[in-house]
Computed example of a mutant assay.
Amino acid sequence: MGAMDTGTTVQLFPLVLLLLIVPLVACVWLNARATAAVSCATAALAMTTGIGHGVLSHGDFLVRLGGLLLGSAISVYAAHRRTTLEAALGAAREVARITQRVILRPISRNLAGTHVCTRYHSAAPESSIGGDLYDVAVTPYGLRVLVGDVRGHDLTALRLTAETLTAFRELAYTTPDLPKLATALDGRLTPELGPEDFVTAVLAEFVPGEVRLVNCGHPAPLRSGRRVELLEPLAPTTPLGLHPEPRLQRALLQPGDRLLLYTDGLTETRAPDGTPLPLLPVAARALSEPLPEEVLAHLCSSAHAHAGSHPVDDLALVLCQPTEAAVRVPMVT
């Protein structure tokens, strides 16, 4: 082999291993079959180049070709593992979304003298599972409603959502007042929460003529009557899981008035330029709709319109309206 051939050979051997970049990149984006096809084409190119330069049987070339083939095989396996894990994760998330829809069952009915209508808006299908939650219970103490938001996303948030709803369904029927109910919920949830986990929550209890509230770090409910106003808590307290000191708040609520409970997906909606959703004007327009379902649909569409191309976060809405047929629920001691 002449001097020129020797120089070409010296340059050729490193290039064979550089071809390994091709299947390595392919395994990141393609499935196993496509990665295998790319690997075969890369190996064929290397062998054709070796034949063309008369070095196919050269020891150093064969060592590098073997490294290329081994790396290609590893790339195919890596592509297979990646696509398998992605499929499993996608299936798990789909099951979680279905489970979440079952847990957050839609409601539109009269319950103990109050019409309750709910709506849950999930963020884009490819996004994470959220932790927004709501539930209602007709108890010996009146109709009770829970709206909350678990910190975090994905399966951990879904598990804590289920834990919160289970605790509420068990304790709402046996705990005589809302501050004690909030304290009991905190005691039940704290052992289940991680060091950075918590649950914001607002509890509402409806009796003729008024609503009783306990707010644990959650956005303030909106009441519409003669005007639309926020029912801010008397004193701020921490979310569930952070040992709140709940205080009872009472507000008038007559037939024809409405109470809107919601999660921070509404208050944190931002326009593309960062402008927050003007909550009170938007809520006032929505609450003027005649039907509860139209109120909630108006709120969701307003949030989408304000956000523009930005995704709207998960959002839970619960609209409560006393009816003319309200009957006092006997208190049980």
Rank of each mutant, 00 (worst) to 15 (best):
2 G>Q: 08
235 A>W: 03
271 A>D: 12
87 A>T: 14
181 L>G: 05
211 V>Q: 07
201 A>V: 09
221 P>Y: 10
86 E>C: 06
34 A>F: 11
9 T>P: 00
234 L>E: 15
233 P>E: 11
163 E>P: 00
46 A>L: 11
123 A>R: 04
96 A>I: 00
324 E>I: 05
279 L>E: 03
244 P>V: 09
248 L>C: 04
169 R>S: 07
188 R>A: 13
191 P>I: 09
236 P>F: 04
112 A>G: 08
208 P>T: 02
158 L>G: 11
245 E>S: 14
83 T>K: 08
148 G>D: 02
294 E>Y: 00
229 E>C: 07
113 G>T: 04
202 V>H: 01
176 P>T: 09
30 L>Q: 10
130 G>Q: 01
18 L>Q: 07
172 A>D: 03
289 E>H: 07
235 A>K: 14
208 P>F: 01
154 D>G: 04
249 Q>H: 10
125 P>G: 06
116 V>F: 04
158 L>K: 01
195 P>N: 12
277 L>R: 04
95 V>G: 06
16 V>G: 03
129 I>H: 04
22 V>H: 08
9 T>M: 10
108 S>L: 04
5 D>K: 13
9 T>D: 08
174 T>L: 11
291 L>E: 15
300 C>Q: 14
233 P>S: 11
328 R>M: 10
104 L>M: 10
143 L>R: 01
140 P>D: 08
131 G>M: 05
89 L>G: 13
84 T>D: 12
145 V>I: 12
253 L>G: 11
304 H>C: 10
46 A>P: 06
192 E>A: 08
155 L>P: 06
209 G>Y: 05
96 A>Q: 04
19 L>H: 03
239 P>M: 07
245 E>W: 03
41 A>D: 03
162 A>E: 09
177 D>F: 02
89 L>N: 15
289 E>R: 08
103 I>G: 02
22 V>G: 03
248 L>S: 04
89 L>K: 14
136 V>W: 01
197 D>I: 07
207 V>W: 01
140 P>S: 03
58 H>Q: 07
81 R>D: 13
161 T>Q: 08
285 R>E: 15
198 F>D: 09
197 D>E: 10
327 V>A: 12
224 S>K: 11
273 D>Q: 12
154 D>W: 05
258 R>T: 11
320 C>D: 07
93 R>C: 05
243 H>M: 11
229 E>K: 08
109 R>D: 14
267 T>R: 06
57 S>Q: 14
303 A>P: 01
331 M>R: 14
128 S>D: 12
14 P>L: 02
290 P>Y: 04
224 S>C: 15
331 M>V: 14
92 A>R: 13
332 V>S: 08
119 R>Q: 13
248 L>I: 02
67 G>C: 13
57 S>F: 15
185 L>K: 00
308 G>V: 11
210 E>F: 05
312 V>Y: 00
